[in-house]
Amino acid sequence: MSWIRNAWYVGATSAEVGDAPLGRRLLGARMAFFRDAEGRVQAVEDFCPHRGAALSLGRVCKGELVCGYHGLVMGGDGVTRSMPGQRVQAFPRIQRFAVEERYGFIWVWAGVADEADPTTIPVLEWHDNPAWAYDGGLFHIKADYRLMIDNLMDLTHETYVHSTSIGQQEIDETPCTTRREGKTVVTSRFMENIEAPPFWRGALEAIGVSGNPKVDRWQVCRFSPPSHVMIEVGVALAGHGGYDAPDDKKVYSVVTDFITPETDGSMWYFWGMARRFQPQDKDLTTRIRDGQHGIFSEDLEVLERQQQNLEAFAERKLLKLNIDAGGVQARRLIDEHMAQETATA
């Protein structure tokens, strides 16, 4: 196990947990999500104590989970309620998981459920905010979740992996800075008086800026434990203050990355973009989501092949360069939290 346990991870989107249960492996555990009679999301082990069937293959009836094998009825507290023609008082309780539904996501606590603190869930200011628009998606990726963190904290790869959309040579040519801010690692890069790549030219056109004007561009990546990366990105017309330019001179977004380990070699990646320009334009929201899907699909292939190489050449040591500072610091922060959990336990 190579992840922090006492923390909140995104386990699903709200839309994924409807009338039917959802089964998903997260943080090494098989979980079954369902809604109780009040519509609140519950999560228990995806394991029927009778014969070990997957509870998520059953159905929800009156807010309880009914096993699809022999009809055992399971409550959100992990206690068996009933079973046709059987006494269930002695059935062992299965594990329940603490969950919170917030900002369109189902957050799950990987550690002891009774120790879960909902106040530590990140605040997403754009949710239900008319000044913002948001959309995103989900990928299942066969790679260690820390490889995605490395990828997001070192955006120099954009020049090569995403050359037709958001990549450009100036990313390679502009040094980045990395620092710790408490429990956050921040890597930032600011580029001045450059041409906008295709994605950002399209964003400028959405606010009425045509042609190919010179811009100032920024990338500010923030990693927070256990595995969240928020990336402030955008461009402003050159000479108007860059990152601090007025809204009518820039396009500003936050790329959201919630990365949840499945196993030591696989992850669930909840990605999206919250933008603070033209929020009412639903067609633009769809185009940006589809564009992001294409961009992140390119990352997916790179990371899965990287994971295969790391397993095939496990004896090889990897190099650490200055561009790797964000990922290195993020991993160090993860290790610090894991060591603290071990010491406390």
Rank of each mutant, 00 (worst) to 15 (best):
M1S: 08
N6T: 10
S14A: 13
E16P: 00
L26Y: 00
M31P: 00
M31Q: 00
V41I: 13
V44Y: 01
A54I: 05
S56M: 06
G68H: 06
L72V: 09
V73T: 13
D77M: 10
D77T: 15
G78F: 02
T80W: 02
M83C: 14
V88I: 12
R102P: 01
G104I: 02
F105S: 03
W107S: 03
P118L: 13
T119D: 15
P130C: 14
A133L: 12
Y134D: 02
G137S: 12
K142W: 01
K142I: 03
A143C: 14
R146M: 14
L147H: 15
D150H: 03
L152S: 05
L152W: 02
T156I: 09
S165Y: 09
Q168M: 15
C176W: 02
T177K: 15
R180Q: 12
T184C: 05
R189M: 14
M191F: 13
L204P: 04
E205H: 11
E205M: 06
V215C: 13
V215K: 01
R217F: 08
W218T: 07
W218A: 05
V220F: 07
P225D: 07
P226F: 08
E232K: 11
V233D: 00
G239W: 06
G241D: 07
Y243Q: 10
V254R: 03
D257K: 07
T260D: 01
W268F: 12
W268I: 04
A274E: 02
A274F: 13
R275Y: 10
Q278T: 14
D290N: 10
G291D: 11
Q292L: 10
Q292D: 13
G294P: 04
E298N: 08
Q307P: 02
L310T: 11
G326P: 03
Q329T: 05
A330S: 09
R332C: 01
I334N: 00
H337I: 02
M338H: 04
